Computed example of a mutant assay.
Amino acid sequence: MEGMAGKKSSLTWAVHISAFLLVVLWTIPTLGLFVSSFRDRDQISSSGWWASFSASEQTGYARTGTDDDARQVDGLYVIEGSVTEGDQKLSAWGTGAREPGKYQPGETVEIEDGWQLTVSEDGSYRLTSEKPFGMRRGERIFTTTAVPPDFTIGNYHRVLTAEGLGRAFMNTLTVTIPATVIPILIAAFAAYALAWMRFPGRALLTAGVVGLLVVPLQVSLIPLLQMHNAIGIGKGYMGIWLAHTAFGLPLAVYLLRNYMIGLPREVIESARVDGASDFQIFRRIVLPLSFPALASFAIFQFLWVWNDLLVATVFLGNTREQLVMTGVLRELMGSKGGEWEILATSAFISIAVPLIVFFSMQRYLVRGLLAGSVKGG
């Protein structure tokens, strides 16, 4: 029978397909961002990242020469030149904006009374007439060219050397590492007390922690900043460390408490019988066994602090020396909204470290979350 112990559910395939689709949905945007970071502005504006591995088409136009460029050949007035640059190959051309690809390379058409125009595949054109052209401005030739794939590392060089991202990277590390370690240290002690130490008001404190999980941080930003200014820490690293610690503690305490309360009671009781103090039990037994839960919260907190902009803006500042990476990206978006290649490169650089942290610790994330979700008391 389905659902009995030892029997696999018939919906296992659906779970696998759903997991695969979720992975694909998360991977495709990251891949697109990575590919776009190696493309130049013209490529990004003309085609999607998925077309970067094959030749793409670009449209444009050029003008022929004028009477000053005409010469007589075999009784004809001739103007010659080229409408392409470099190794571009012409795939179609036209003489009007409504039909820029009306003619094929090598085709000869009559554009005026007695004027014959031929455009070759290499982009060279030949305009002939039996009479002087009498034009001061060249005729427009619309072109559709095939541009081969081209990738560059110039975007990365420009961002890392000229956009101030290096300083912002160090600022982000300075904020993120302490803001991840401090709440873990505090929450581990608090979670052990709520899980294994009996004292009046323990249930009330646990309920308070759960209630704090639903409080939006935006409502406390200004009061907390005013308190920081009142006690003299103002805007600085100490203030933002404490702010991130305060905002991250409810989830940390809740997650760790749920995990610790499910640890084997026999082990802890045996340690107490042997004369171990609460601190010794916490340090030698509970902490090593709780490493998956600690790693799970560390991933959450690191990713949240690394990608944070709001808290950093309020508690750190907006000067060039204080900006974190998200702040620099915001400035790039504001002042260089058209330079998408720079934004793609900057964004990928900013997510590189969180990706490394996540993939190096993701096995602990699953273990910690599942254990904390099914154990409790």
Score class of each variant (00 low, 15 high):
Phe315His: 02
Trp304Lys: 06
Phe189Arg: 07
Ile186Trp: 05
Arg257Asp: 07
Met197Leu: 12
Val159Asn: 02
Phe359His: 12
Leu185Gly: 12
Leu242Ala: 07
Lys131Leu: 13
Leu213Lys: 05
Gly166Gln: 11
Phe189Glu: 11
Phe297Asn: 01
Pro105Gly: 04
Met325Pro: 01
Phe358Trp: 09
Asn229Ile: 04
Tyr77Ile: 08
Leu329Asp: 01
Arg265Tyr: 11
Pro288His: 06
Thr144Trp: 11
Ala293Thr: 06
Ser45Gln: 12
Ala162Tyr: 14
Phe20Pro: 03
Leu21Val: 15
Gly234Phe: 03
Glu110Tyr: 12
Ala207Gly: 08
Val175Asn: 00
Trp49His: 06
Ser373Phe: 08
Ser360Tyr: 05
Lys336Phe: 14
Gln218Trp: 08
Val24Asp: 07
Ala230Tyr: 06
Leu224Glu: 07
Thr27Trp: 03
Ala70Phe: 00
Arg257Ile: 07
Asp274Gly: 12
Glu266Ser: 14
Phe20Val: 15
Pro216Ala: 01
Ala97Thr: 08
Ser9Glu: 11
Leu22Ser: 06
Glu130Ser: 14
Glu112Val: 13
Leu303Ala: 03
Pro200Met: 05
Leu173Gly: 10
Asp69Lys: 10
Pro264Ala: 01
His16Cys: 13
Val73Pro: 02
Gly32Phe: 00
Asp68Met: 12
Trp49Phe: 09
Asn318Trp: 00
Val210Arg: 07
Ile17Ser: 13
Leu249Met: 14
Leu21Pro: 09
Val353Ile: 15
Phe348Tyr: 08
Arg265Ser: 13
Leu212Phe: 12
Ser350Glu: 13
Thr66Met: 04
Ala146His: 05
Leu31Gln: 07
Gly337Lys: 10
Leu76Thr: 15
Arg158Ile: 11
Ala92Leu: 02
Gly6His: 09
Val181Trp: 12
Leu160Glu: 03
Gly6Phe: 05
Glu130Phe: 11
Glu163Phe: 12
Glu269Trp: 14
Thr128Lys: 11
Ala293Asn: 03
Ile17Ala: 15
Leu242Ser: 03
Thr180Ser: 15
Leu221His: 08
Tyr61Pro: 00
Val219Trp: 06
Gly96Val: 13
Tyr254Ser: 05
Ser350Leu: 11
Ser290His: 04
Ile261Phe: 04
Ala195Arg: 02
His244Gly: 00
Leu11Trp: 13
Arg257Asn: 07
Val314Asp: 00
Ile356Arg: 01
Phe20Cys: 15
Ala352Met: 08
Ala312Lys: 02
Gln226His: 03
Leu21Glu: 10
Trp93Tyr: 10
Asp69Pro: 05
Gln280Lys: 10
Thr345Asp: 02
Glu80Asn: 04
Leu25Ser: 14
Glu121Ser: 10
Arg202Pro: 10
Ser46Met: 04
Ala352Leu: 12
Phe133Pro: 00
Gly368Asp: 06
Arg198Ile: 09
Val109His: 01
Arg257Phe: 07
Trp26Ile: 13
Pro148Gln: 10
Leu242Phe: 09
Glu331Leu: 14
Phe133Tyr: 03
Phe315Lys: 01
Lys336Pro: 01
